[in-house]
């Protein structure tokens, strides 16, 4: 089954008088359980493609399908619901809510989903343990290192077991040890839960984990390499 399908996606930004083609007739299929890395130089279109797949940005033309449902023509509320229930996001900058503790940040999505408090707390503590943050659940983002914050963000993205995880440069602010730990966690989830991962990255180490490597340049897909299975 196809987890993600993009058909002839185009997106143009205007920067002053200049038009920049962020996505230029992009076609992409990602099967369920896929582990895909999007690789491109800066401005190559990988974040724009990730945003379009996640329903954060609407393409100028073309279609985006997630798990068999077309999303590019959805309303804001429908997109919010889709993101809430089916997609986990890991952003480059940790993007935690500063007034919430690590545990509360992890619980945030579940709380919006309406998961009962007791279940939320249990799941949040489990995943924090899984990402190596046991005992730090009561800390606020300002009291944690960059790597710890990124792991909280990852925990938040994964805690409700979404079918699709979109990660934008998830290791950009991590040391190599933390980056490896994070990628191994991704691989484990991919293998055990058939979670689909689409990761935008520059990082060669991250690319090494991918089953499939898609190279982009100037908004177009210029390479699609199938690598090893996990």
């Amino acid at each position: 089954m196809t987890a993600v399908k993009c058909i002839d996606l185009c997106k143009t930004y205007r920067q002053g008088e200049q038009e920049i083609k962020a996505l230029d007739h992009v076609d992409l299929d990602v099967e369920r359980g896929g582990f895909v890395c999007l690789s491109a130089p800066s401005g190559g279109g990988k974040t724009t493609l990730l945003n379009a797949i996640g329903g954060l940005d609407i393409p100028d033309s073309g279609q985006v399908w997630i798990a068999g449902t077309r999303i590019d023509n959805m309303s804001k509320s429908e997109l919010a619901r889709l993101r809430l229930t089916q997609i986990g996001f890991v952003f480059q900058a940790y993007n935690l809510i500063p007034v919430l503790t690590a545990k509360e940040n992890v619980e945030f999505v579940m709380q919006v989903q309406g998961v009962p408090a007791r279940d939320r707390a249990k799941l949040a503590l489990e995943i924090l343990d899984e990402v190596g943050l046991a005992g730090l659940d009561g800390r606020r983002p300002a009291e944690m290192s960059g790597g710890q914050q990124q792991r909280v963000a990852v925990a938040r993205a994964l805690v409700s077991r979404p079918a699709l995880v979109l990660a934008d440069e998830p290791t950009a602010n991590l040391d190599s040890h933390s980056a490896d730990g994070l990628m191994e966690l991704f691989v484990e989830l991919n293998r055990n839960h058939q979670t689909t991962f689409v990761i935008a990255t520059h990082d060669q180490r991250v690319m090494a984990y991918a089953k499939r490597l898609i190279k982009m340049l100037d908004g177009r897909i210029v390479g699609d390499i199938r690598q090893h299975e996990h």
Binding site: A80, R81, L82, T85, F89, F91, R156
Partner: peptide
């Protein structure tokens, strides 16, 4: 602004 964007991105509805 950034936090509000994050909450919207994570699926919080605009009305919230």
């Amino acid at each position: 602004v950034r936090e509000i964007g994050l909450m919207l991105a994570l699926g919080m509805r605009p009305v919230s």
